[in-house]
Amino acid sequence: MTERNRPLERMAWQLFELFNATPRSRFKIELPVAPWQECVRLAKLIRKAQAHDCVHATEHLLQQFLETQQTLISRLTALQQELKPSSNASPRSTVSDLYLDLKALHEEFASVEYDRHNHQLTVTTDEIVLDDLQLGPFAIVLECDQLGNVSPFRVEATDANPASGSSRTTHPHVQDDTLCEGEGRVPLERALRQGRLFDFFLIVRQILSSYNSESAYVRIADWHGITCHDCGSTMVEEDRESCFRCETDLCSDCSYGCQSCSERFCNGCTEACEVCHEYYCQACLQTCSECELLYCEGCHTDDKCPNCVEKQETEANFSSAANPSVHAVRVGEVAVSP
């Protein structure tokens, strides 16, 4: 016969009351505004990259757009499901379910503590290691009296190894103790709404155990600082600039602003106009059809550089001088143009 655990039973009852104090009728509708705004921003950037024929940047942005679009769709789908009539609602946890969840949490995690005065359930993971980067254990603190709010939990590093350039970032996906759930957001929301505590903590742990380099506050490769592609110096995340064309990381000294389109570029993606000697990105420079000299829009005349235009004019003048309409022979006068 299974032995009853009285403290866990009491905890399960308290949690049951808190979970049921947040009925569906008080469900706060949170529209996915952030992913929508990100889609709008990315679409704008894609159009810009396409206008500059930046193939690599366009591909990268399109991938980001697809992922953000998927997030938007998932969030809207989840909201739609949550707002369906209660007859279709998924089952909610009973006291018995919560008791079994708590028992399973004790077996699965290093530590489980409940602060009954502050209604905080804290579950601590084992050490999290991502690609050989040791980040230490994390305490997942669930505010059980805030279950109707968005993300009513925080994630605290108990033996933090923060990014060198950002002490607020204790994990590639945790900043200021807030976990950016990414793909886990919808299942986390559903688990909490249905009172599935064990699933909730398991999902958070799996997010902490995963790494998405495409969408990290600080990438693991940059955890101990970011290297400038051009000069090799190390910088912090806040100082990082990126080449608009090839997307390499640059320090502020190695990032050049194109005089025409104002985007930032690395040394390899910029050229000097050979007429005015200002720097421009390759997309904003043109090649002279005569001498193949690179020149900018400001120095542009038809499809020739100013040098060739001047040369052409000189030749035209010379030609006119050689064949005047009036021959000033022996009269002491200069040639007259037609």
Partner: peptide, 13 residues
């Protein structure tokens, strides 16, 4: 219950 081993986090969306 079925839970993916890898669930990719993201930056604040």
């Amino acid at each position: 219950s079925i839970t993916a081993r890898k669930i990719e986090g993201a930056v604040g969306l």
